[in-house]
Structures are given as C-alpha cells and as structure tokens.
Design a protein around this nucleic acid. Structure first.
Length: 723
DNA sequence: CGGGAAAAGCTTTTT
DNA sequence: GCTTTTCCCG
C-alpha cells in the first residue's frame, strides 16, 4: 500500500499496531484521509476481514464519503463493512434482532416532528396543561434522559416538575411501544440495552468486530460512548479521531470529556497529533491558534503550515447590519471581477440563521446568485411527510403518528370530535388508533355521516394495501400519491407553493425508483427499507451544488467544509458570543471553539465583519466588537473603517492603525456634508430618493431615505450624495 | 373547513 | 420587527 502521500504523523496513525489509538486531528490536517487509509491498511496489511471492521461517523454524508473512498482504495465493494452513523448502524442491528429487542418486525422510526406531535398528544391524554408543560420541554427532557441511558424508572425524582416529566416520559414510552415506533434516541438506547442484557449477542458482536473506528469523537454523547464501549469489549482495537477544539455540540449533549475519558477506559491508548495543516495560510492559522489558546483544559495542539503567511485578516466595522452586508457583497463583486475567484469559492458564515436575511437581500440587489444551506430538508416537507404517512400505515396499521397525520388529510369530513373519541377509546382500551377505529365502527358508535367517512377511510387504506402488494416500490409510491388524493389536494393549492409541492411529490416517485435501483435493502421488504431510509437519511440537496453560488450557512453547518474566501459576519458581543452563552464560562468556550471552526474554514482569505448597530427582534442595539476579535493578534489584522476618528476595536486600536490598505471609505465620508430632511439625494445602487429623517451628524449621520424604486431605507451619509 | 386575525416565538442541528 | 403557528368565527 502506498503511503508516500502521507506525512510522518499521518503514517504513524495509519500504520500503528493493533490496539487503541487517539488521533487528535486539527482542522484541515487530513483526518478523513487518515481514517480511510487506516481501514485500507487494516484490510491489506493486518489481514482483517472487511466484515470485522466497524466505522462510525455522525452524518450520512461522512459515512457515504468514507465508504466510497475505501472502495476506491481497495478496489472491492466494502458492503460487508459496517460503516455508518451511530443511528444507521443501530438500525441495522435492531432490524436483525427485532425479536430480542421486543420490537415488531415492521417497526418504524419517528423523526423529531413525529416525536413532538406524539408527546403533545400524550400530554393532552394525561390531562396536563400544555402551557405548564410545553411539549418542547418534555421532548428535550425525554431525549436528554435517553442520551444519558436512563429509562423512565431510572430517572431520579427531584421535584414535582421532574415527577410529571417522568410521567410524560413513561406515557410516551408506552405509546411508542403500542404503535410499534421508535425515535432516534431509542435506536441507540435499545441497541445498548439489548447488548448489555443479552450476553450471547454481546459475545457474538464483540467477537465479530476486531477493529472499531470513530470519527468526530468530540461530538459523542454519553450513550454513544457507552454504545462504543459495549461493542468494543475488552479485546478489540479502537481508534478514535477527533479535535477537542472543534467541539461545538455541547448544547445537544456532546461530551467533550469523552476524549479524555477514552485514555483512561481504553488501556494503553496511544496519542497521535496531526498538527500540520494543508488548508489555510500561516496568518489564518496563527489567528486560530491564538484564539483557541484562550480556552482552558485543552488537550493542546498547535496548527502549522509549510505554506506562506498570505494576506492579513480583514476586519470591517460596519455601521449597521445593512452596511455590513453591502461591504460583504461589494467584496464578493470585486473578488469575482478582479481575481479568478468563482462565487462557489466564497462563503458567508454567521452565528444564527436570522442573519442571513439582510445578506441575502444585499446579494439579490446586485443579482449575485447564492445558496443558503440548512433549510427545510426534502423528507421533512409537509407533502412528503403526508405521502410517507400513507406508506407507513400500509406497512404498519398500528403506526399512530402516521394515522393522526392522514386520517383527515386530504380533508374527508372526519372532524376533531370524531378523532377525540377514537383517541379516548384507544387510550382506555390500550389499543392503537387503527384498532380503536375498527372497534368503534363495529359498535356503531358514530353518526351515519361520520361512519361513512370513516368507512371510506378504512376501505381506502385496505384497498391501497392490497393493490400495491405486488407493485414495484416506485409504482407503489405513485399509486399511493394518486389514490390517497394527495396529488388532487395539492393541485388545488394555489400559487407557487402548490406547484412546488406537486413537484416534490413527483420527485418522491423518482426517489423511490432510485432507491430500489441502488439495491442494498438488507433483506428488508423494499417499502420498509425505503421508509427507514427516508427517516434516517436526511438527504442534503447537493444536486445544484455545481451552480456557481455564494455559499451562506451557519458556523455549525460549516464544520468540515473549506472555502478559499470566508466572510465571518456578525462578530459582535451578544451575537457572537451569543447573549444566551454570556453567563456561562463553559458556554463562552464553546462559542470560542465555534469561532475557531469558522476561522479555520478559510483557505486563503478571511474577512471578519461586525455592525455597530444591529436591529434584532425589532430593537436597535449597540454592541461592542466581539471579544474574539481582540483575541486575534493585532499584527494579523488589517482593519477597514468607513471613518477615521475613532478606532473600532477599543483599547487595542493602536496596533490596528499600522494596517495597510484600509480607509477605503474615508474619502467619501470626509467630503460628505450633512443632509437635511426633505433633501433630494442619490445612492449609487438605490437611485434617487428623499431624506425623511436624520440622526447624528457629520460622517456618523444615519439618514432615512425614501427611494423612488426600492422603498425606505436607513443608510449612512457617506453612501449618499446630494442630487 | 377555510381564511384572516391574534399570538407566540426568537441560537446553534443530526439522526 | 418579522415570520410562523394557532385560534376563532362565519
């Protein structure tokens, strides 16, 4: 096997003898290459059978990528290898051992939306006040308990509130059992519990998997750690790869301590550091190192590069968020025109989604194509979930969440009253909604009108099931779309929205077709396999990634990606670090790691921008520049200001004045005279308008202008000229 | 049952 | 302030 392309540290990790290893892989240090090479090495040099390797990642994307790379390296399909997410692998395990796990063979997976609805229903059924016990909180509580491996009876009762939450957890647990559905956390928990209690199975799997590898280990939570330990047993080799400095998911249960714990629990673990960075310039790495060195209790790591220092980091102090957005957009235009940068090489990163709007508007005004990552995913769309709910009911009549969803969608005259009586009957007789419905019909419980509607529903589902039995998967889906009336229903929905929905539904037929062609259904019935795929594989729409678009996303979704040019927007106290993290030193450290992630996304050029005034939740707020800006050595920064009087970065300002190339906007500001209300003005982009209001004076002046074509906007005086 | 008015959010997200 | 969800009534 050729390892020439790897540096000494990478080679050390790849060729390490069997046994435990902790690879601390800095940003851009070639961590994925090490993982894939390691697996290939195990197969080729250590003669480990592919079926005895277990590799875990956090996202499907990472898992698919890893599998593809390994297949390319080994020139054989890696089908027998267990490569996947914690959830995906747990699912595979539970499908194989559904009986031992006490699940129906046709068990379905609940996504968080289904889970939410189900919990809300449980809260109502317990006659609890939704305002005192919001379903969101219960959902959070239940998931947190499951992530700590605690079943309802194992939760410590601290006070009345917790006691009630436990009741909700218990009732939800029973409802899931009855409906034959399990949520995401259950996939892990049930796998863990089964392995823990069933010695025979445990022995089998511990004997099978000789080598276990985990990517992004800093993101593991308590149950994932326990899960891994159980699969690993005492005699197998475990390699974990991670970076404590990139742990940004503490808020959803990730335990950064798991990395430290690993060295204790897995005896003789060797630590290998990957610190050579192949992504960023020296300047960017120096900034990142300085920033993260402010955090306490790190395992310690210093990124370096053989490459050049490159350009300084540009810090821009915007007047307000619109000004900030225009700065970014102007720079994007310049880069596009003057250099060879294409738009897709530029990314705008921000702390929270709400920030994207202003930037999008600015991009739109200049006609620059862009793409916002992290919107509603395909399988989460309403119309898709409707269609899937029909398929779920076909596969499993007891799927209550699916039943609730489609009983009156499209509307077929089954009202809330009818539904409530079905729910009550189900609850008092411990039945599924479907069975309760059948019983009530038999008992002649309903009015003639309701009964007709209900009977036609029951017939519809039964007919669908019979008719689709022999059909191929995509034909099955197609049949259901029409027979359910969903196509007709969304055709009636007027406007763009309805059209998109129809397109999405048609796409579902294609998706099913594609799915069955790709094969790999793991001896599950195709429909069940497809439903599981829809629940577990969130399918990020990479389809149009080839379009040349500026990339917009949150810092969280940027993890793992890289861009030649990065704009890090909104570098202000209260926004970044976020005000909800301000009082907790641990949370501040996580924010800092988030900043570190953002900085290390940049390959050649990094811009960091902030606004002095920002409108949030309807209020205008003045914020100081982010502390993270101060934590980056001044000599790495070139600050651009639209005015010269005061330094933006407070006490550290003097050092910044040595920067080159700044002051782009000074000339305009200095020659600017004050505007007065009623004056006619001109803006380079917005055209002509009338001054409605002025605030402040001189170059600091905020001017409200009503433009002839684009409406009313507040701008800084320096962007305006008298007509 | 649909549409409009009122009210409720409002940090980060994968599975 | 703006957008999404819920609620209420014709």
């Amino acid at each position: 096997m050729i390892l020439n392309s790897l540096n000494p540290a990478q080679q050390e990790a790849v060729r390490a003898p069997l046994g435990h290893q902790l690879v601390l892989a800095g940003a851009g240090s070639g961590k994925t290459r090490v993982l894939t090479h390691r697996i290939a090495w195990l197969v080729e040099n250590e003669k480990i059978a592919p079926s005895r390797i277990l590799a875990v990642t956090f996202t499907n994307k990472a898992a698919n990528e890893m599998r593809a790379r390994i297949e390319k390296m080994l020139h054989v399909p890696a089908k027998s290898m267990w490569i996947g997410t914690f959830h995906g692998l747990s699912h595979r395990f539970l499908r194989a051992h559904w009986q031992e796990a006490g699940l129906p063979q046709s068990f379905q997976i609940l996504d968080s939306d289904d889970q939410f609805r189900m919990i809300r229903r449980v809260i109502h059924a317990l006659n609890l006040d939704e305002d005192r016990f919001p379903p969101k909180e219960s959902q959070w509580f239940i998931n947190a308990q499951k992530e700590e491996c605690r079943e309802p009876h194992q939760v410590e009762v601290r006070d009345f509130t917790v006691q009630t939450q436990i009741r909700i957890y218990q009732a939800y647990h029973e409802a899931c059992l009855r409906a034959g559905v399990i949520d995401f956390a259950d996939l892990l928990l049930k796998t863990y519990k089964l392995l823990l209690t069933n010695a025979e199975l445990r022995a089998h799997y511990q004997d099978r998997f000789r080598c276990l590898l985990v990517d992004e280990f800093q993101d593991t939570n308590t149950i994932q750690y326990a899960w891994l330990k159980l699969f690993a047993g005492d005699s197998n080799s475990v390699m974990i790869v991670g970076d404590d400095d990139q742990s940004i998911y503490g808020w959803r249960g990730a335990r950064i301590e798991n990395i430290q714990r690993f060295s204790k629990d897995f005896a003789g673990a060797r630590i290998i550091r990957l610190e050579q960075n192949y992504r960023s310039t020296g300047t960017i790495l120096k900034a990142a190192n300085a920033l993260i060195s402010q955090n306490a209790g790190r395992l310690g790591k210093n990124l370096w590069t053989e490459g050049k220092d490159g350009e300084p980091i540009t810090v821009y102090a915007g007047f307000n968020e619109t000004d900030e957005a225009f700065f970014i957009v102007n720079r994007i235009r310049e880069l596009k025109q003057k250099s060879d940068h294409v738009l897709r090489e530029m990314a705008v990163l921000y702390r929270s989604n709400a920030q994207s709007r202003v930037i999008e508007e600015a991009l739109m005004q200049f006609g620059i194509p862009y793409r916002v990552y992290g919107g509603l995913r395909y399988f989460d769309r309403q119309e898709i979930k409707d269609a899937l709910a029909y398929l779920r009911i076909i596969a499993n009549r007891s799927d209550d969440p699916a039943f609730e969803r489609i009983i009156n969608t499209p509307v077929r005259g089954i009202g809330d009253r009818t539904l409530v009586s079905i729910r009550e009957h189900a609850k008092s007789h411990a039945l599924t909604l479907w069975d309760a419905l059948l019983q009530l019909i038999e008992q002649k419980h309903f009015s003639t009108r309701a009964e007709t509607a209900l009977l036609s529903f029951v017939n519809l589902i039964n007919t669908m099931t019979e008719r689709t039995l022999a059909l191929e998967l995509h034909k099955q889906v197609e049949y259901v779309l029409y027979a359910s009336g969903l196509i007709e229903h969304y055709r009636k929905e007027k406007g763009e929205k309805g059209l998109t929905r129809l397109e999405n539904l048609e796409e579902l037929v294609n998706a099913a077709h594609q799915f069955s062609q790709d094969g790999v259904t793991d001896d599950m019935p195709p429909l069940a396999a497809f439903l599981a795929y829809a629940a577990l594989e969130s399918s990020d729409e990479q389809a149009d990634a080839y379009d040349d678009c500026v990339q917009l996303m949150t810092l969280h979704s940027a993890k793992g990606l890289e861009f030649p040019v990065v704009f890090l927007a909104g570098c202000e106290e209260e926004l970044f670090p976020h005000y909800l993290s301000m009082n907790d030193p641990k949370a501040i450290e996580e924010e800092r790691r988030l900043c570190y992630v953002g900085v290390t996304r940049a390959m050649r050029k990094l811009y960091m921008t902030y606004a002095e005034v920002r409108r949030t939740y309807g209020k205008e707020a003045y914020h100081r520049p982010s502390r993270f800006l101060h934590e980056i050595p001044a000599e790495l920064i070139d600050e651009i200001r639209f005015r010269t009087k005061t330094a933006r970065l407070g006490n550290h300002a003097q050092a910044y004045s040595s920067g080159t190339g700044g002051n782009h906007f000074t000339t305009a500001a200095e020659t600017q005279n004050a505007f007065r209300v009623g004056q006619e003005v001109r803006h380079r982009i917005f055209g002509e308008g009338i001054v409605l209001d002025c605030e402040g004076d001189g170059e600091d002046m905020k001017v409200k202008v009503r433009f002839a074509n684009v409406g009313t906007k507040v701008l800084i005086a320096s962007y305006l000229s008298a007509k």
